[in-house]
Nucleic acid binder design. Structure first.
Lengths: 195, 195
DNA sequence: GTCTATAGGCAGATAGAC
DNA sequence: GTCTATCTGCCTATAGAC
């Protein structure tokens, strides 16, 4: 999942987002500060406020950019992979990549901190999961009509379950620093869906 | 899962733990302060330091008590339920109870914050998951020999997958404030294991 | 056990010069 | 765009009286 920059944001703003993104995904939104970013970037916190008025706005931009990058990846998967099972595997692969960098899914970690988030960020977290659920339900429908997946019940619920399982597998893999934990749960999940 | 107090801790210390427990499970370890507890308890933060020297020690006590309560619950499940499927359902029920109180599993939320935790707390988080995995693997073995579960591959890995799925389902249910999301994923998980 | 008083540090944020 | 200077508030923590 490569970087795809098409905003009218400055280079500095992008670097701020890069650093903040890593900090959120590894420590959580409440466990990093403007000071952390400023130190790493070699500027002052006052300068940070020029690019993002406050932490809430920074957080909002963070999720939006993250979600957009995922959207792009999902679009590419749709274009490049004809088969549902391959799509699901690729989807899980997106999370595996993050985990390889010792990062939790941003929206997963924000879900854990949900009650403490500024309103604007909450909406974006929900939207992220809704979008993925919709995309997954579509893939499931396709796999079902292709005869590649054997599914019982609501596709939306199955999609929810897939997201839950992947997020949970990432979450538990974190303390163990162990990608294998994620991989085995993922393969098992896919195997259970296959016809 | 009722409270089971058998420590030589004071009543105040237990009340501190009760409040802190709720705060951790709803906001995370990094998003609550001694001040929050003090305000709610009607004493000063200085007094808090008498009972728990620092936030790290409080955190450690918090996980230990939580894990102990779970241990007790697992023991009761073993004693009261002869059948593996019922045990698994009861296990999932423990998490459902927490979620009904709008709480995330303590160790699940601490997993998300793992990188920022004091060393002593990290060990306890790992131990929690290890213990549950061992217990679940035992239940799976029993269900298999009873002919009630149809399992392929490593029981330890399946146990890992169960924990991941339950934690993930809780995590995603949080932003939606929706217990149904957890329940549907849970039933689906159990159905997939049944013979 | 609980208090007052206090410390030092860091948080997010703003004003205004350059 | 970035800086210095500054603010207010909160954080964890300690000393010592009661």
């Amino acid at each position: 999942m490569a970087a795809a920059r098409a905003n009218n944001r400055s280079r500095t703003a992008e670097r701020i987002l890069d650093i903040a993104e890593r900090l959120v995904q590894t420590r959580g939104f409440n466990a990093f500060s403007y000071g952390d970013i400023a130190r790493e970037l070699g500027i002052t916190t006052a300068s940070l406020h020029y690019h993002f008025p406050g932490k809430a706005e920074l957080g909002e931009a963070l999720i939006k950019r993250y979600a957009q990058r995922f959207s792009g990846a999902l679009g590419r998967i749709d274009k490049e992979m004809p088969e549902a099972v391959a799509k699901l595997r690729a989807y899980a692969g997106l999370y595996a990549e993050e985990l390889a960098g010792k990062r939790m899914c941003m929206c997963g970690i924000l879900a854990a901190e949900y009650q403490t988030l500024p309103e604007a960020m909450r909406g974006e977290v929900i939207r992220f999961f809704d979008d993925h659920q919709r995309w997954l339900a579509g893939v499931l429908a396709q796999g079902q009509s292709q005869g590649k997946l054997r599914l019982a019940g609501s596709l939306e619920e199955i999609a929810e379950g897939i997201i839950s399982t992947l997020e949970g597998a990432m979450l538990i893999a974190l303390p163990y620093g162990d990608t294998a934990r994620f991989d085995s749960t993922t393969s098992r999940l896919l195997a259970a869906l296959r016809a």
